[in-house]
């Protein structure tokens, strides 16, 4: 007889996913801003990443029994600064603050009302500030991706989560979904440009596709090691592995994560890279399809990890 944790469901799965994806996306924005001098693309990518994380935080707050009292995470009279929720909330706050300063420091023409407010800010258009806050937002973004795994990884009540492999898996998945999320943003942005300018965005698409292929390969390696090791116990973790590979979660895990979310996108990205190596002008449609699959797979991954959380068995076997 065993119990699967039933406390955290879709809202938390979505939060873990969105927090990771937004955190990963900010890194790509920083790459555009400070390596490629693509201010506008950097701004759009950073705004997208920020919105994704804020939506994630919204889900986290919505999952609380007292959402209106979320501020107690920082202002409780008995604040526990060692709690991973406090640590994570601090990282998320830093991410949002640095992200906002970074975005508004980029030299971009803002539309309508924003166009009147943002240029007044003292840091607007200052490359050095964009560089520093972009880096800080990127670091906070990376910590966010890491923290989503640590949050549940420290719990020894669920042996299947209590492993260093979990934060590593979440980091790999977060960076991968973040990269492809911005790949989509880049491609959509590219489509709005005249045809003769598009090759630049196609080039970025290829670069991001290559990054993602590497990240997916790492992720697959972690997933297989993770499951293989735990298929030898402890008992609760063995049950989790069974749930994922042969039990009721298998269609989601094998079909949704391993095949749809990782293997097929990897093949598509590999195909794209090979076509380019042969000198063919490959369409960005293929990496875009891969990107959508990776994103859906990333969300399902968080869900099945939560749903396979078999809790410690502490009563005698029946």
């Amino acid at each position: 007889m065993y119990i699967v944790q039933y406390w955290w469901e879709w809202l938390i799965a979505a939060y873990l996913f969105l927090g990771g994806m937004g955190g990963g996306g900010m890194m790509v924005s920083y790459y555009f801003c400070c390596r490629k001098s693509e201010q506008k693309l950097a701004a759009i990518s950073a705004i997208t990443s920020l919105i994704i994380v804020i939506v994630g935080v919204f889900f986290l707050i919505l999952d609380l029994e007292k959402p209106e009292k979320f501020y107690l995470v920082f202002m409780s009279p008995h604040l526990n600064t060692r709690s991973m929720i406090f640590v994570g909330s601090s990282i998320l706050t830093a991410f949002i603050i640095f992200g906002l300063i970074y975005i508004t420091s980029l030299e971009v023409k803002w539309p309508s009302l924003l166009g009147r407010i943002i240029p007044v800010l003292p840091w607007y258009g200052r490359g050095s500030i964009a560089n520093i806050t972009g880096l800080l937002a990127t670091i906070a973004g990376f910590l966010t991706t890491f923290y989503t795994g640590v949050l549940i990884g420290i719990l020894k009540s669920v042996p299947f989560w209590h492993t260093p492999a979990l934060p590593l898996l979440f980091v790999a998945s977060a960076l991968s979904t973040g990269v492809v999320g911005i790949l989509l943003v880049n491609d959509i942005y590219g489509f709005t440009k005249p045809k003769e300018e598009r090759h630049r965005y196609e080039e970025y698409c290829s670069i991001l596709g290559k990054w993602d292929a590497i990240l997916i390969s790492i992720e697959l390696l972690i997933v297989f090691t993770y499951l293989f090791i735990f298929s030898y116990g402890p008992r609760e973790a063995e049950l989790s592995v069974q749930l994922l590979t042969a039990g009721e979660l298998a269609p989601y895990f094998i079909g949704g994560v391993i095949l749809m979310g990782l293997s097929i996108p990897l093949l598509l990205e590999y195909w794209h890279i090979m076509s380019e190596n042969r000198g063919r002008r490959a369409s960005c449609a293929i990496p875009m399809v891969a990107a959508i699959l990776v994103i859906v797979g990333g969300l399902i991954l968080r869900y099945v990890i939560l749903q396979s959380g078999v809790m410690t068995i502490f009563l005698p076997p029946s």
Partner: peptide, 25 residues
């Protein structure tokens, strides 16, 4: 001051906790 994040409930290896909807805690 319980906000009902349920982190404690997941962390308890003895599954001793529940959400009381009336207390929202």
């Amino acid at each position: 001051i319980c906000i009902g994040c349920k982190y404690c409930a997941v962390a308890c290896p003895y599954n001793a906790r529940y959400v009381d909807e009336r207390k929202r805690a």
